[in-house]
Design a protein around this nucleic acid. Structure first.
Lengths: 237, 237
DNA sequence: TTGAGTTAAAGTCCATTTGACTATAAGATT
DNA sequence: AATCTTATAGTCAAATGGACTTTAACTCAA
C-alpha cells in the first residue's frame, strides 16, 4: 500500500495465549477446576485479569510459545497441550485503533493436580475457580468458556483425565476427575464398567493400603495409546 | 520482501486459507467430494497446486477473509464456514528464511452441489477429487487431510449435510450425501430411522414426481436448529 | 392392461450399550 | 464381633443400531 514504514500498521499482529486447567480441592473437599490468570498492568483493561499470553516470536513454534507462557506463569510443564482456536474479531479490543489489531492463537493445557500445588502465585498471578471467574480482559471470558466446553466434550472419548492424575491411581480417583470436570456425580459401578471395557486403563495388580475400607486396586493408563484423538494432526502440531 | 526492513523480520505474518468442499457427480454417477485449488505462480512451490488464501488485511475479520478467498476463487458463497486450525510450524515452508515465517489460519467451507456447477474454473483454478490430490505446496496435503477428517467426524452429529443440499430434498439424496462424504454405503431403512429419530429433518408433505418408481417425500432441515454445534462460540466467530 | 422393475417406507429380530439398582467382598474402626 | 465404608461383581430393563423382510406406489415395456 503506502510504503515500508507502514508495514507494522498494515499487518495484524500475532499473540499466543494459554488456558491452563488443573484440579484443586475446594473448601468442601471435592476437586474443582481451577485456572491461573495474570493481572494486566497497562491499557487496555489495565488492572483486570487476563489469560497468560504474549506476542509470538519470529522463530517460535506455536505450541512452544503456549508452553512457555505456561512455564512463565506457573513454573509448571503441561501434561497436555492442544490448540483451541484463533480469535481475531475486529472488536476484541474495544478501543480498536487499527494499529492494535491482534489475532490471538489460544492453546489450552492440563497440569497435574500434584504438580499444581507447587505452582507460582503472586500479586499478579492468581488461580481462580473455573466457574467463578470475574469479568476478564478482552474476550477472555468467552475463550475460557469455550476451552471448558472443549475439555468437557473431549474428556468422555479420550484419555484427557490422565493429564490430571499421577502415574498410578485408583478408579475412585479417576472417577473424581470425571466428576469434577463434568460437574456431576457418576455411578461408581457403571463408571468401572465403562473404564474397563474401554481398554485405555490397565490394572497394575498393586493395591493402595491405608484406607479405612477395602483396599482399591491401582491402575495406570496404557501408554501405547495417545492421550486424545487429533486425527491426522496427531501430536505434531 | 527485502525492502520491508526491521518490522517484517520481527513479526510472523498472518495468512488465511480455505479448504472448500463440494460434492460433484463422478464418471460412475455417484457423488464424490471435490475441492478447488489454485496454481502457485511464484516461489516457493512455483507451479504447484495450493489452497486458496492470502495475507490477512488489517481490518478484515478472519471468517470474512476466508469467505472472500472462497468468492475470489470460485465465485461462490459458502453454505457453511468454520475455522479449522492455525498452522504455524517453523518448517511449513522448506526454505524457511526467518523473514518468511507465515502462520496460516485455515477455514473450511461447504458449497452447495447445485451452486458448485457454476463455479469458476480456469488455467489456474482447478477442482480436484478430495481423495486424488497431487502433492500440494507447503503443508497443504496435511491441511486437507485434517479438514476431511473434521468434515467426516462432524457430519454424523450435526446438520452439515445441509450445506450440500437444496432447500428440500429426498431422504435418498440426503443419504447420498452421507455416503459420498463417509465413503461407504448406508442401509436406506436404517438411515431413514436414524434421520427421523434425530428430529433435525422434517417432512414437507410434498412428493417428488417423475421418478420411475414410488414418489419419495420431500424433506427439509428444521431451520430453528443450527447447522452444527460450536459450543459457546456459536456462529459468532 | 398387466406384470416386471424400482425405490419408498414401515416393521422385525437380535446383539450391544447404558442407566439404575442389588449383592457381596475386604479392609478399618468401635 | 458388629459396624462402617468403599471396592467390585452382577442383574434388569430400556434404548440403540445393524441386518434383514415386507408391503406400497409409482413407471415402463410387453
Amino acid at each position: 500500500m503506502i510504503a515500508k514504514a507502514a508495514t507494522a500498521i498494515e499487518a495484524p499482529s500475532l499473540a499466543v495465549s494459554t488456558v491452563i486447567f488443573t484440579l484443586r480441592p475446594s473448601e468442601e473437599g471435592q476437586l474443582k477446576l481451577a485456572l491461573p490468570l495474570v493481572k494486566r498492568i497497562r491499557a487496555p483493561f489495565d488492572g483486570q485479569w487476563a489469560l497468560p499470553g504474549g506476542p509470538l516470536k519470529i522463530n517460535e513454534d506455536l505450541a512452544d510459545a503456549a508452553a512457555s507462557k505456561l512455564k512463565q506463569t506457573t513454573g509448571l510443564e503441561p501434561r497436555y497441550l492442544e490448540q483451541l482456536y484463533a480469535f481475531g474479531n475486529l472488536d476484541r479490543s474495544p478501543l480498536s485503533k487499527l494499529e492494535e489489531r491482534v489475532v490471538s492463537i489460544v492453546y489450552w493445557a492440563l497440569v497435574g493436580t500434584v504438580e499444581a500445588e507447587k505452582a507460582i502465585e503472586s500479586e499478579n498471578v492468581h488461580w481462580f475457580w473455573a466457574d467463578e471467574l470475574p469479568k476478564l480482559a478482552f474476550d477472555h471470558n468467552l475463550i475460557v468458556q469455550y476451552a471448558l466446553w472443549r475439555l468437557r466434550n473431549k474428556l468422555e472419548y479420550s484419555r484427557l483425565a490422565h493429564g490430571f492424575l499421577p502415574e498410578t491411581f485408583t478408579l475412585a480417583q479417576l472417577r473424581e476427575v470425571y466428576e469434577a470436570v463434568l460437574n456431576k456425580p457418576l455411578d461408581p459401578a457403571n463408571f468401572r464398567r465403562m473404564v474397563e471395557s474401554n481398554g485405555a486403563v490397565v490394572a497394575t495388580g498393586k493395591y493402595l493400603a491405608g484406607t479405612r475400607h477395602r483396599p482399591p486396586q491401582l491402575y495406570r493408563y496404557d501408554s501405547s495409546i495417545d492421550l486424545t484423538d487429533l486425527g491426522p494432526l496427531g501430536e505434531k502440531q
